[in-house]
Design a protein around this nucleic acid. Structure first.
Lengths: 156, 156
DNA sequence: TATTGTTATACTCTATAACTATA
DNA sequence: TATAGTTATAGAGTATAACAATA
């Protein structure tokens, strides 16, 4: 196979290449692809890691609040948490103050899993963003934070 | 219900809020949510629209090339195109030059569908990006284009 | 041997609605 | 009546591998 066939031929996208939704979809696919290609499938998937991470920083957090922040629907949350509970990473308890709710905390095993994975996840993160230089990467992160509601003020 | 319960309580995310992968996932969910909440479910879904749009700009494009550009895997592409063919929007032909390949073009009905939907899609696009101002939105798009490989040069 | 596309299978993520138990 | 969570079900998207036809 020659080199030219490795290159993606030109495809006209016109206005589509200026679509925020389209770009975000491609960018997310790209980020996940990078993430999984670098190494074989490891212990925690990105979604599981983020759930465990947030529980670790917010012990006793309610399922509903966790779901709101991570944009995971209630029904899906139930299944996700059950898996993590079955793995022995998360424990659930019903608070006396509101017996409808469920408060989440990590087990010792869960805390250890987050600890182990976090080095891996975040060291990967720093090495990512390939075609962007450091300044651009920082700026992209800043703009996304604002877009997503993680910043009250300006994006810079 | 009082106002305070409508607001999302603070959740500590720490380093996670600086993760590009995490932010891209949230941003994409947000963009799609905006898109679907504004209006009821309309004719074309974003994925279908983008496929039709690209075929419209690149008549006779091969399935493989289309898939590469839109980051859709071959097996998925087959199913996607079949649906669009069954809807009478796309037609397929085998070129004599390479009888393994499939060249895609839009039918008259397909061209009309793109025409109709494009106004809707792109006018929505312009009104989007809510917490960002125009300059920030432009910059975000620019950075994403570079990240995703739609620009050779610099991101600005 | 490599490539294009297809088929079959399965798994994840998401959406919806009906349900319970509490409030 | 409203809320937190659960259950059940279905659909979309994706991943994988085996396959046929062609190069």
């Amino acid at each position: 196979m020659d080199v030219s066939s490795r290159r993606i031929e030109r495809v006209k996208l016109d206005e589509l290449s200026g679509s925020l939704g389209f770009l975000l979809r491609l960018a997310q696919l790209r980020a996940f692809e990078d993430f999984f290609s670098d190494r074989g499938p490891r212990g925690l998937k990105p979604g599981e890691f983020s759930v465990l991470w947030v529980i670790a920083r917010n012990p006793g957090i309610r399922q509903s609040l966790l779901g709101q922040r991570l944009m995971i629907k209630r029904a899906h949350m139930t299944k996700l948490i059950r898996v993590l509970e079955d793995l022995g990473l998360v424990s659930r308890r019903t608070p006396e103050a509101d017996r409808r709710a469920v408060e989440l905390t990590l087990t010792a095993k869960g805390r250890q899993a987050v600890e182990t994975s976090s080095t891996e996840f975040f060291s990967y993160e720093e090495a990512t963003g390939e075609p962007l230089n450091d300044g651009e990467r920082t700026q992209l992160i800043s703009l996304l934070q604002k877009y997503v509601g993680l910043r009250e003020g300006e994006a810079r």
